[in-house]
């Protein structure tokens, strides 16, 4: 008890001098002490497509983000506009929150709105995006639609550097449906793939890189059957010309 009182007394003695240690020192409330908040806009694809059966499309696949290392808000947008029909074959917007889950991967969650010509769909999105070993940029998403249908999409991209400016990028996008959504022409199983090869040249830094390429689109299984029943094709080859843009 005695020692306790003594140390309490000692504490009381030292206490008044303690604030002097901190109070007159500036507190770092500069932006240096805040997480870096950054933004960016990128179009992986911004292109004109011409198909083997003379169909013409305007296509984009881009995203914009705002946020920190820990949390980013991302708006991802994809569209395919049929120039002759003046109609969107595909129009997809995703609003996502993204946070790191490992050194090279982020988890993402959000909402996807599909508003093409024809029926609309809204989906909940859960996914992973990042850099796999050997420099494959991968992105995997799980979707649950407002109709209760689930599907998954897998994206991978690889860049081959012919030179430090002339770059061949290979992209594969595959969609699998776990249930049928006949109204939007989706059958159960592997739905479709889109494979692209684009040869680009970095003209202005990495902010403007024009490219030429080929894209192959194919529908599979029940989805292909649904397309055939509608009188639509199940496979397309496109020649593409466009630019990768970032700012």
């Amino acid at each position: 008890m005695k020692t306790l009182t003594l140390s309490a007394f000692a504490l009381a003695l030292t206490l008044p001098s303690l604030p002097a240690l901190g109070s007159d020192m500036p507190q770092d409330d500069t932006s240096r002490k805040d997480a870096l908040t950054l933004w960016g806009v990128q179009f992986e694809e911004l292109e004109y497509r011409y198909s083997d059966d003379d169909e013409e499309l305007g296509v984009w696949n881009g995203d914009a983000f705002y946020g920190t290392d820990e949390l980013k808000f991302r708006w991802q947008s994809k569209g395919e506009y049929a120039i002759e029909e003046e109609a969107y074959e595909k129009l997809e917007n995703q609003l996502l929150l993204q946070t790191p889950v490992s050194d090279f991967f982020d988890a993402k969650a959000g909402v996807r709105f599909d508003t093409p010509e024809g029926p609309d769909r809204t989906y909940g999105v859960l996914g992973l995006t990042g850099l796999a070993p050997h420099w494959f940029e991968v992105d995997a998403s799980l979707y649950v639609s407002d109709e209760g249908d689930t599907s998954a999409e897998f994206d991978a991209e690889y860049e081959l550097l012919f030179t430090n400016h002339l770059i061949l990028s290979a992209a594969l996008d595959a969609t699998v449906a776990f249930s049928e959504d006949r109204e939007i022409g989706v059958g159960k199983g592997l739905v479709s793939t889109e494979t692209g090869l684009r040869l680009s040249y970095d003209l202005i830094d990495r902010s403007f890189s024009p490219y030429l390429g080929v894209v192959h689109e194919r529908k599979y299984g029940d989805t292909a059957d649904l397309a055939r029943a509608e009188g639509a094709g199940t496979e397309d080859w496109f020649a593409v010309i466009g630019a990768r843009v970032s700012f």
Partner: peptide, 8 residues
């Protein structure tokens, strides 16, 4: 430069 490095 900082923004570009963070982006790519």
């Amino acid at each position: 430069v900082m923004r570009n490095l963070k982006m790519m």
